[in-house]
Nucleic acid binder design. Structure first.
Lengths: 132, 132, 132, 132
DNA sequence: GTGGTCTAGACCACA
DNA sequence: GTGGTCTAGACCACA
């Protein structure tokens, strides 16, 4: 369910980290459940295992997952509360950036609202089919 | 007026490019006007001249500015129309990304609208003073 | 009585080896006495049998224990003298490392003595209850 | 000044991290001073640049150093206070481990003191010559 | 030249 | 099979 963009500037390991946080946030993977193995996820994403390993390692350092050697990585017990905080910060950040970008090009609040609406609609019309 | 973030993953030359497009878009610099020299802008942004040079070079390739050797770089005659197209695409892109990011974390349209409103207000209260 | 740390870098089989040497050294298990079976110890330590097997195998190679196929592992006849030598070397090693670590951070002999005293006291106050 | 043990179980990147913390602690490198470049240190330690890079990256995440891309890594402004805390924790840890190791082999406080004294003397006699 | 990311691939501890 | 470390080496952004 994680998608990787190789164009663009965000490192693959960051995209993996965000993808996993997203899955935890959505409840796709729940506390104490195992993540896919490094090798499996690497194969699925067509990415080097080292890159996945880095993502997992950083998620572990940040407390989202914990790893049992020889077994697998598991979503931490307290991941939900961590994710919750992280998510709020992340969402604020994402829209602050988008809005200040828009402001830099002279858009006012009304125009921003309008473009948000149009993109919301646009994604509804296109995107919904994919999930089914 | 251009601000550079050294943390984060977006290359500095990209930030400079976007900054200049923004200034053209806002009319801060108009068609046929000269851009600051590479050295001056580099000094102002506390950035290496090579980085500014790259931004200018790419803006030239994209037709936004034209550089006369030994002289300076000027905003192209047809920059406004180019910028206009670029701006629409850019804004759509920016909000598409923000919204799909939010969707990845399970936010629905109502929640997205709410967060956009809160960030719009938040930036009004803080940010406006800086521009004056 | 053996405790395993899964965080940290010392392999589990090494921790098991040291734990058994410790028990021989303390007389908890005496010469010619049987060690717990690999399966039992593995269960007790919540560790994979392979890992215990490796510890036993290496202890055998070093002469501390001997394994009779189909039966069990026994503490060797001459284990005490071996342990005695090993223990002296081990203790010197342990404190050499600790002290040189402290030296690397600029502590002088007086400061090292002081910290040793404080840790000795600290462990007395907390740790003694656990053993009983 | 950093020494790497390839025998033993502590990962090279950890040894590098500790070595650098030690140098900061000793004032060998001071706040705002540049660390050796990744490539240089890798060459000096006869280690892969990736390994040094990992050490630097983790030191950065922990706040001890900060990296300016294209330039170098620098000791953070607030490194001293961080190091101070880290050092205390580290020294307590080191001696707690050493002492509990000794306890596992039946040594009492008096014997531990004696062995500490003997190792302190031993290192004085051997080690001092090297520093000059 | 300097740091950052990524790949390919080896070897080890653990299950 | 699973994660962890390490090496060798490529390519990019930045100075």
């Amino acid at each position: 369910m994680i998608t990787i963009e190789t164009s663009g500037f965000i490192p693959i390991y960051e995209q993996i980290k965000k993808g996993i946080k997203s899955e935890i946030s959505l409840g796709v993977i729940k506390a104490n459940e195992a993540l896919p193995s490094i090798r499996d996820l690497a194969a699925e994403l067509v990415v080097n295992p080292n890159t996945v390993a880095r993502a997992y390692r950083e998620l572990e350092h940040e407390g989202f997952i914990c790893t049992r050697k020889g077994k697998a990585s598991f979503v931490s017990e307290n991941s939900s509360s961590l994710i919750q905080k992280d998510k709020v910060r992340l969402m604020e950040d994402v829209f602050d950036r988008a809005i200040s970008e828009a402001r830099k090009f002279g858009l006012d609040a009304a125009e921003i609202r309008r473009i948000v609406e149009s993109r919301l609609k646009n994604q509804e019309n296109r995107g919904e089919g994919e999930g089914r």
